[in-house]
Design a protein around this nucleic acid. Structure first.
Length: 218
DNA sequence: ATGACGATTTACT
DNA sequence: GTAAATCGTCATA
């Protein structure tokens, strides 16, 4: 359906994050190829108070400057020397809030190309993680700072579909953020098998199988 | 100029 | 479960 407008993104990250679940991220390559997927997992980064945010304490650097731009701006950064992560900037200009896109349910028409970009066969592993989804969607530094409300390279669309059950949990990979590591600022579609990590308190299928085996042999 | 580290992923025990 | 991969970024000097 239609591209989401700036008014959709212009709100607090804790409000935007759950609203993004079930919408569609679309990427248009230079040759016109379209790649897309339904957003099934996101995290909110609350701003200067948020120890886990790149903008903690009001930090403003060459890397995170996009976080201070207007709502609907893409904030893409490089991390661990090999992966990209994509955020959607929100709130008002000058207020560094953003929502990290952590997982997509890839649309079937995109599977073949995503498999090539990712180098894996498993559909489940195509977009189930912030670095994975960027690799699958060919999202890199070049998209940092683009306006998702007007860009021809990437945008977000509303989707008509049955209500998706959304669950909250703790954010991933920010254990060193003190009390902020415990806040429930991650949202994911409960039924999705394309989420990057199981929600708190739920073991992965693999862990459950291993657990039952150990129980029998104990 | 330098060193520690990361909003991750992958392979392996 | 643990560890390696791999390099830009940021704080400190």
């Amino acid at each position: 359906m239609g591209r989401l407008k700036r008014s959709f993104f212009a709100r607090e990250s804790v409000d935007l994050a759950p609203a993004l679940i079930g919408t569609r991220l679309v990427r248009r390559l230079d040759d016109g190829t379209l790649l897309s997927g339904i957003i099934v997992e996101v995290e909110a980064y609350i701003g200067v108070k948020d120890r886990a945010s790149h903008a903690f304490g009001g930090r403003r650097t060459a890397r995170n400057q996009a976080m201070y731009d207007e709502a609907g701006t893409a904030y893409v950064y490089f991390t661990y020397g090999m992966h990209y992560c994509m955020n959607i900037v929100c709130a008002e200009r000058g207020v560094p809030q953003a929502v990290l896109l952590r997982a997509l349910e890839p649309d079937p028409a995109s599977h073949a190309i995503m498999r090539r970009y990712r180098g894996v066969e498993s559909e489940r592993l195509l977009c189930s993680g912030p670095g994975r989804l960027c690799q699958a969607m060919a999202i890199d530094r070049a998209l940092n700072g683009i306006d998702l409300c007007t860009s021809e390279q990437a945008w977000v669309e509303s989707v008509q579909s049955p209500a998706r059950e959304v669950v909250r949990s703790k954010r991933i990979g920010i254990d060193s953020a003190g009390v902020w590591a415990k806040r429930l600022l991650r949202w994911s579609e409960k039924a999705s098998r394309h989420v990057s990590k199981p929600v708190d308190g739920k073991r992965s299928v693999r862990a459950a199988i291993r657990g039952s085996k150990n129980r029998k042999t104990a």
